[in-house]
Design a protein around this nucleic acid. Structure first.
Length: 700
DNA sequence: GAGCACTGC
């Protein structure tokens, strides 16, 4: 019963690996502006800074920023661009006269941690000369902060108050190649701003692949004379260690099993070094962990000296479990982290030498015709594959085992489809309208979304009353909806809650719905967790259940111990209190009356309907649900408190997600008469008493 | 009885 060790066969192609980029470099004279040293900073910090690969491009970068409105910088991993470029700009005087150098990041942690590093390098207290701004946490001083790090979503929000971003002299969009929704929105808006503000400089930090696309997008020169180009490109080499890439000799029938076998093969044949394996979801991760733990036990029985420490990693794993992957292990132990895509960009684990890549990822897709989102296991892109491989070369040279053939690798798409093209656009359109983009169909998108997604978004916003029949933002409804950091349906529900007499409860419900995994289910305590969770459940559905959870949390003084006993997500609930506070402030701003339903559930449910009437379904005699709009088959999601209970006849839901079936998430029972009453433009009562719907408010 | 990749305002 020895483990099936070396069944995996890999080979290494001639010359793979992170090579040197061949991107065109501009060869221009440098300006030679002097390096200004900060007297508060020790010389050793300066020496460290000068050792970074980007340092020798310092003057060239400053020259390019001086000469071009936009500079695309292809900065490879470890070149120091995120921390150094803002400082070079500061030293060269770009923050004079109260101007600010802004640097955006797609993720909150990146914004705060880079800000920290730069403040440290400058010997400054975070929040003064160097600061950051993310949602719920503004660590910057409008008078003192010269370098400001912020999330790209925050930058878009700032445009609502200051459409030309006048306080910034330079903006650097870091990690632009990730093409997150907000990076893409910011990119389109910045192009527009640049036409009005010729003095605003833009630096787009990107990977090699997309540099040309960015350059063409931002080049405002239409003369054909390259001397008049407004956008330049510069490539800066990185500092990473080589990673040898291996492919399987033949296609792998089952990448879960292959992952297990490859880990064992590495353990058996390779030198020291931790392993990181990529899989697509929680279920696969847990399966591989279980199988490996079993094998590890067998190995230790056979007297193999070196032990395996196998750890899962995915977003919904409880926080304490997640932290284990960062713990150091003794030299006699090899750490194996089995992770979802969270390990591709969001977290970095030190000490990883070996990477196993299954070639797949779970991605969100959006169908504008049905307005249904789905999670689909999709082949990764080449860019993703090299990002995964690079996770093995952070501290020393590494090896990446790809569980697919080189031939299949060649067939992968170059880059992942940008989020803008696979999402529900209603929130995006609402924001653009609020920013004064009247004709969103003609907005300069870096990658235009499908026209049908736009049309669907406009229809929904019209039905919610956020846009008028001409597609113009309504005032006050549309204007106010756009200010909420939530999807338009939630915003509508909140703004109506004063009229329904339940704004206190609705704010709580909206806040709770922003938290993922309120109920924790540890794999080994499923029964106990379900028993605790049932205590909060009510027959009306998930919305009121969440209200119960939140009110109990407050009643028990926001206790972490109490949360643990009831298998509730403590950090999530704390976050709900902050989200709630922010929403409450917005409600005050718009003078939504503070009212309470005083225990009457119906007013709350009716208020939910006023925002979510478009997401309604009725019980079908087949036993499944059908959407009211287009008679599509739906099921209650197994995580809903209504799952397995006596099904209500009519429900509304927050969203539908397609995995194995079409599942409604966050479901609440309603009365059909409420739908007709609260959304008469959307539904009408047919003569025989049943409810039907119409796309354009027709009445029978 | 069957299941949620990951961010962000």
């Amino acid at each position: 019963m020895a483990a099936p060790l070396s069944t995996m066969k890999f080979w290494k192609p001639g010359s793979e690996g992170p090579g040197v980029s061949e991107e065109r470099e501009l060869t221009t004279e440098t300006t030679g502006s002097p390096v200004i040293y900060n007297p508060h900073v020790s010389l050793s910090v300066e020496k460290q800074r000068q050792k970074l690969p980007i340092f020798k491009h310092r003057n060239h970068i400053l020259y390019l920023v001086e000469s071009y409105q936009t500079v695309v910088i292809v900065g490879e991993t470890g070149c120091g661009k995120s921390t150094q470029i803002p400082q070079y700009l500061l030293e060269a005087g770009w923050a004079a006269e109260g101007k600010v150098i802004g640097v955006t990041q797609p993720r909150r942690v990146a914004a705060t941690s880079v800000a920290n590093r730069v403040a440290e390098e400058r010997g400054a207290l975070l929040g003064h000369e160097v600061g950051y701004t993310i949602r719920f946490d503004d660590c910057s001083d409008p008078r003192a902060t010269r370098i400001k790090f912020l999330t790209d979503g925050m930058l878009v929000r700032e445009m609502m108050a200051d459409p030309l971003l006048k306080k910034y002299s330079v903006l650097m969009l870091d990690e632009a190649h990730e093409r997150t929704l907000y990076t893409d929105i910011a990119i389109g808006l910045l192009k527009k701003i640049q036409k009005k503000r010729r003095d605003l400089r833009l630096i787009v930090a990107s990977a090699t692949l997309d540099a040309k696309k960015f350059q063409e997008f931002f080049n405002l020169n239409e003369s054909g004379d390259p001397n008049k180009d407004t956008c330049g490109i510069l490539t800066v080499e990185g500092r990473t260690f080589p990673v040898d890439v291996f492919y399987t000799v033949s296609p792998v029938p089952d990448y879960v099993k292959a992952t297990v076998e490859t880990v064992l093969k590495i353990h058996e044949t390779e030198d020291d070094g931790d392993v990181l394996a990529f899989l697509t979801g929680q279920e696969e991760v847990e399966k591989v962990v279980t199988m490996l733990v079993e094998q590890a036990r067998a190995l230790s029985r056979f007297g193999v000296k070196k032990h395996l420490r196998v750890l899962p990693m995915y977003a919904s794993l409880p926080y304490a479990e997640q932290m284990k992957i960062f713990e150091r292990v003794p030299p006699t132990v090899r750490k194996v982290v089995v992770a979802t895509n969270i390990a591709e960009t969001s977290i970095t684990i030190n000490g990883i030498v070996f990477v196993i890549d299954c070639a797949f990822v779970k991605l969100r897709a959006y169908n504008p015709r049905t307005t249904i989102e789905s999670l689909v296991v999709t082949p990764i892109s080449k860019a993703s594959a090299s990002q995964r491989a690079g996770r093995g070369g952070r501290n020393r040279s590494g090896k990446c085992f790809r569980l697919y053939t080189e031939e299949d690798f060649e067939k992968l798409p170059a880059a992942t489809v940008p989020e803008m093209q696979r999402t529900n656009l209603a929130p995006v359109i609402l924001q653009l309208k609020a920013l004064g983009i009247d004709n969103v169909l003609r907005f300069s998108f870096l990658s235009p979304p499908p026209a049908q997604s736009m049309v669907q978004a406009l229809e929904l916003l019209y039905a919610l009353g956020g846009l008028d029949q001409f597609g113009r933002l309504t005032d006050p409804m549309g204007v106010r909806m756009a200010e909420f950091p939530l999807s338009p349906m939630f915003a509508k529900m909140l703004l109506e809650s004063g009229n329904f007499g339940c704004s206190k409860e609705i704010v709580t419900i909206a806040a709770m719905m922003q938290i993922q995994n309120v109920f924790l289910v540890p794999p080994n305590q499923k029964k106990a967790a379900a028993k605790e969770h049932r205590k909060f459940a009510v027959a009306e559905g998930d919305h009121l259940t969440m209200l119960n959870v939140y009110e109990a949390f407050i009643k028990h003084q926001k206790g972490s111990q109490w949360c643990q006993e009831h298998f509730l997500n403590y950090k999530g609930l704390l976050r709900a209190t902050t989200v709630r506070e922010q929403l409450r402030r917005l409600m005050n701003k718009f003078k939504v009356p503070r009212t309470s339903s005083e225990g009457d559930p119906d007013v709350i449910l009716r208020c939910i309907v006023s925002g979510f009437f478009a997401n309604a379904a009725r019980m079908h005699h087949s036993g499944s649900y059908r959407t009211l709009r287009d008679d599509r088959e739906l099921y209650i999601h197994p995580n809903s408190v209504l799952f397995g209970e006596k099904p209500p006849k009519w429900v509304v839901f927050n969203e539908v997600i397609q995995t194995a079936k079409y599942y409604m998430r966050d479901v609440t029972a309603v009365e059909s008469s409420w739908l007709v009453e609260l959304a008469p433009h959307f539904y009408k009562q047919a003569q025989h008493g049943s409810l039907s719907s119409s796309k354009r408010a027709k009445v029978i």
